[in-house]
Write a protein that binds this DNA or RNA. Structure first.
Lengths: 183, 183
DNA sequence: ACATTACCGGAGACTGTCTCCGCTTGCCAG
DNA sequence: CTGGCAAGCGGAGACAGTCTCCGGTAATGT
């Protein structure tokens, strides 16, 4: 890639992150182009679809998922506390950008989605937590990873769309956690 | 209201129901106007916002909520079976029109939403089921109705957006039900 | 029959999406 | 250094959807 092309690309992603944060994931792409100082054509060449741009914007913070998993697994207080800590992190990460909770959770089962890599990371992170709990025999045996991701993703989507804070989300996550743990 | 106005209104709702079913809740309003044989102005006068039209379209099947509650409560097999039966009905009703699960669940906590009446009906229906279970002392004491509605609404939203069938939704509802029941 | 006025409808302004193509500019071979 | 040539740029403009405005139409009460 030519140097100027790379510069433009980086610039677009940077501006897009800002604009998406301000106005949601459905902000006008032309405004992003304008604020990035490039023509619409340039934006669309680098990112043929809106989702491709989402994908690029999300890249940075999705890379933090791994450390959030480890943080949650280091929580004291038994499986329930660990699970809740992880779910809270999961929701926090997913709602960091308006609209992404829904986008990622919906795409979880779609093999050729433009944001597939993001979905994978979330699914793998969740699986890691579930596996850790399974090792302690704390988890019900019949739960599958995908369902749990969708369940928590559903909570995150609602939290996102209705602008719920952590306090309002907590009781929902407790219900999910209790439903998942060995009874 | 004048007779011709009433005629047009009914006609618009009827066509809108059809179009929303075919193309989702974000179908072009102008197409609805065209197929209803009225001008765009007429449509917008009767329904100032898209949501107002959603509201009118949903009216018919929201009226069925009550009977679905009773059907679920008549289910044999104890509290868990009843709860699951109701949740399954709830999801089925919410996903009957693409996009409505998200719209209704998001608006649950918004006092001045255009679709407030719909939300109320869902919330009340859910409360009725929860109350019935509480009477049998089957439910955990600390769950609030709104959280449960959001939780199940979240599942419905995911089911809607990812086009999940009842079979894929079932395990999620089981987790929610188990988390809600007295342990 | 007539006046009144609620109501109709579609032209058109506006906003956002996305493409096309003439121009510019970074890059490398000579 | 410099000339040539793609790669890349950018914005005009076609297209689609939203929503308003207002001249005209026709239902209704007297």
């Amino acid at each position: 890639m030519r140097a100027d092309a790379q510069r433009n690309r980086d610039r677009i992603v940077e501006v897009a992150r800002q604009v998406f944060k301000e106005r949601g994931l459905d902000a006008p792409l032309d405004e992003i182009a304008r604020r990035a100082g490039v023509g619409a054509g340039t934006l669309y060449r680098h990112f043929p679809t809106r989702e491709a741009l989402h994908d690029a914007v999300m890249q940075a913070w999705v890379e933090q998922v791994q450390e959030h998993v480890d943080k949650a697994l280091a929580t004291e207080g038994g499986p329930r506390a660990q699970l809740l800590a992880w779910f809270a992190e999961y929701v926090e990460l997913l709602t960091r950008h308006k609209g992404s909770a829904s986008a990622i959770t919906t795409a979880l089962g779609v093999p050729d989605s433009p944001i597939r890599s993001k979905c994978q990371i979330y699914a793998q992170a969740n699986e890691k937590v579930l596996d850790a709990l399974r090792a302690d025999d704390a988890l019900r045996s019949d739960v599958d990873n995908l369902s749990v991701c969708r369940l928590v993703g559903g909570v995150a989507t609602m939290a996102d769309q209705a602008s719920l804070d952590a306090h309002a989300v907590r009781p929902m996550l407790e219900v999910v956690a209790d439903g998942l743990l060995q009874e």
